[in-house]
Design a protein around this nucleic acid. Structure first.
Lengths: 298, 298
DNA sequence: CTCAGGCCTTCCGCTCAACGGAAACGCCGG
DNA sequence: CCGGCGTTTCCGTTGAGCGGAAGGCCTGAG
């Protein structure tokens, strides 16, 4: 396309622009964006203008940009996350009510944990901007849990790609990581003492689905004092069991499934069902199924 | 770019693909996507492949696609929505605990309401897939509230663009809409009886921010029986007042502001502050402010 | 077994949308 | 009035994107 262009797709560049915004810098000027995504100014200008036109970026009165609310539109249509989120929320709330610290629900995405729900309190130990979002698997307790129950190839990949060491206690090296993962599998929980921030400790447990596969992890971020993690672990384990039960109920194939529940679990299971079957099963008793079938034969 | 191309940007086409997915059809095959976005198959194939590579689309074992969890990453970085969401959640939960029906938090986006938070129960009157997401302003109670307090030009635009009539009771025509909006402004709440679905009724109230501007709307979806909406209105009004108070507290410029709160309100206010000042104000008492200032002079 | 019909994937020559250096613009503070 | 900084516009160049067409793969009918 252009001279110096690295032959990279436009979409990728647009995403580079969106990536420039993170929890620590939610507002950026054009120049800052160009800088952060290392692109020529004029190119950035064009990309940004287009993103703004599409509503993915919004401009503030002082000309700085922020990510647009429209991004929520797409996120809220994501089937897997939505269903799991809504099923898990009451359980997260129960944990949060007791622990009174950041409580999160994370799923595996690439080499990172992606937190799709977070309950916080303003007096939490750690600044909320430092947690949440996307975090490399080996530095977060939730990530470690997910990695411990993921395919072995993923572990190889993650080790090959390496990860940042935020503090002195962050796990370093493939062997140490593998050992940690073995422990996590044996224990059924993960504790990460100061991996991301000296003063915080992550505690997480896996959330099983009806097929015995680990779908997600739930965890809390507490103060990294010497206190025993045991109470938190017990709370989390109970909550995880509750979510698993909710997932199983949602998966009942007899039409009693709750809409969002079914949506979530189907997507997460990686079911081979198509939308129609999906709706047929979940609206089975509402009578709507016949209309759907009629409209869309298969 | 190509022969028959309408001279449309690539990003727009990518978004057309993402738009093809909605609440009613969360899983689509390549052909269905091509169809829904009216694009040639081979073009769609390329677009979809790239979206998948970027994680915005995910492929199921049966080759159908769904929106990828990665979309959550961007949504969760959106400053405005996140802060408002977390501030509002306890209040939404309070309403939801009493009403036991869909409770939503919506913001204005284009000619639609965008619901950025939703609390549901599986025994809610209306199928959850039919609510939430993006809805034209004049057909939703939350949308009507937002429109009633929006700039007059927006009302003109919305009327000019028209909107779908889902049921026989959906508002039709500019004059009727303007009259309805006047009532809503006078009453302080909106009731939408069967505008979207015969059997459901939306009730919504505005959420004010510290500057007296309406930032959002909160609402519930209940059965469209003859019951008085008064109890729900009172609950919603109380919750809205609570959220306003939370927003005001969050906006205190003395450094006592909670991180996410401030982030939300700043973005919503359309403040002319930049990220640095923003962090300075909210981390004022944590001592971090000095480091920030040092790093980023201004 | 063959054949027809969906659906998906790959190929490839033709363009124009995207590219980005450079120059003009607008807004400060001095 | 001027210099500095961030933003916006201009414009010649070019390869990323385009999409028709052909080739695979599967399934279900004959």
């Amino acid at each position: 396309m252009a001279r110096g262009s690295a032959g990279e797709s436009v979409l990728h560049k647009h995403l580079r622009v969106l990536q420039a915004f993170d929890a620590l810098r939610p507002f950026l000027t054009l120049t800052e964006i160009a800088d952060a995504s290392s692109m020529p100014l004029s190119t950035t200008h064009r990309l940004v203008a287009e993103l703004e036109r599409e509503g993915l970026l919004e401009r503030m009165p002082d000309r700085s940009y922020r990510l647009g609310v429209r991004l929520w539109e797409f996120a809220s249509r994501t089937p897997g996350a939505l269903g799991l989120r809504e099923l898990a929320r009451p359980w997260l709330a129960a944990v949060h009510a007791r622990v009174r610290q950041h409580t999160q629900l994370g799923v595996l995405n690439g080499h990172d944990v992606l937190f799709i729900e977070r309950l916080s309190t303003r007096d939490a130990v750690l600044n909320a901007t430092l947690i949440g979002g996307r975090t490399p698997l080996p530095v977060s307790s939730s990530g470690l849990v997910l990695l411990a129950h993921a395919a072995p190839e993923l572990v190889d990949e993650v080790i090959a790609a390496d990860w940042p060491a935020y503090t002195a206690t962050t796990i370093r090296g493939g062997d140490t990581l593998r050992a940690k993962l073995r422990h996590i599998r044996a224990d059924g929980f993960a504790v990460a003492d100061g991996y991301i921030h000296e003063e915080s400790r992550g505690i997480a447990v896996p959330v099983m689905g009806p097929h015995g596969i680990v779908y997600a992890a739930i965890g809390v971020v507490v103060a990294n004092d010497g206190a025993s993690p045991q109470p938190a672990i017990e709370l989390l384990t109970m909550a995880a069991a509750g979510i698993t039960r909710a997932l199983e109920e949602a998966y009942l194939p007899d039409g009693t499934a709750a809409p969002d529940a079914a949506r979530g679990i189907r997507a997460l299971v990686g079911s081979s069902q198509r939308s129609l079957d999906y709706f047929a099963s979940l609206e089975g008793k509402s009578g709507l199924v016949h209309e759907w079938s009629a409209v869309n034969g298969r």
